[in-house]
């Protein structure tokens, strides 16, 4: 039997993002040199929402980049199917910037490893921080998030999906049995 459980609703999701926005500003002492980079595809929508919140708190527009990590994946040469390549668009220099990477779900950490390698190819940021809506555990690399919406202990057989209105209808986080 398939079990589907909503673990975060639209209000909860918005509150989490608001808190993360404040935490980013608090930890970095404001928004000077701050840039956001969303990871394709879920992270891009969340990064846009965070940017809107931070920009209105600070009264100025925070730069936003889009990163597709496909070309930096570590399973490209072993897997049969090729992931569809998305667009990367970072229209500003990362040199000396405080970069906040944004993704929807933190799981094995391999995506973040790939993202950091990609960012370094674009320049030398002053620092890189990580913001995720959901941390579901099961790390395979020594990586942790600086800003977390919700820690969600999960089993490997469960699928965690972040649904967003920009992507697939309603704002909610769902966990379900995937076998």
């Amino acid at each position: 039997m398939e079990q589907k459980k909503v673990v975060m609703d639209a209000d909860g999701l918005d509150r989490s993002l608001t808190r993360i926005a404040y935490e980013i500003l608090e930890k970095n002492g404001g928004s000077e040199d701050l840039v956001l980079v969303g990871i394709q595809t879920g992270g891009v929508f969340l990064a846009r929402r965070l940017r809107k919140k931070i920009s209105s708190m600070e009264g100025r527009k925070i730069p936003l980049g889009i990163l597709d990590i496909t070309l930096y994946r570590d399973d490209l040469l072993t897997s049969h199917r090729k992931p569809l390549l998305g667009k990367t668009d970072i229209p500003f220099s990362l040199d000396g910037k405080k970069v906040v990477l944004v993704d929807d779900v933190l799981f094995t950490g391999r995506t973040i490893r790939a993202a950091m390698d990609a960012l370094i190819d674009f320049g030398r940021p002053k620092l890189i921080q990580l913001a995720v809506l959901i941390d579901r555990g099961h790390r395979e690399l020594p990586i942790r998030a600086d800003f977390v919406g919700k820690n969600l202990p999960s089993s490997l057989w469960e699928a965690v999906s972040v649904n967003l209105t920009e992507k697939n209808g309603a704002d909610e986080v769902v966990i379900e049995e995937s076998r």
Binding site: L71, L77, T78, S79, H80, R81
Partner: peptide, 10 residues
């Protein structure tokens, strides 16, 4: 694009 799409995996 072609080199990317035509390599990898058996």
């Amino acid at each position: 694009a072609l080199l990317y799409l035509m390599t990898g995996g058996s």
